[in-house]
Amino acid sequence: MRKTVLIITLPIVYFFCNANHAYAYIDPGTGSIILQVLLGLILGIVYTLKTYWLNVKDFVSRVFKKKSI
């Protein structure tokens, strides 16, 4: 649940934030990795929802096709 809240709120929180110029000399990849993991989750959910939606659409269209026959 906490993760879901994070996924939804993080982009909103950061939306109007300005990043200062950063020279990431210690671990330049850390932020990129965290973002990628979160983004992967979001895009994965979108992908799953899209698949479900296509299945529902497919089911509905098949039902109506049958009725019209």
Binding site: A19, G31, I34, L35
Partner: peptide, 15 residues
Amino acid sequence: HLHARFQKQYETRKL
């Protein structure tokens, strides 16, 4: 944009 923010936010944190 978000990527830049994350880089700044986590530049010194251990993951």
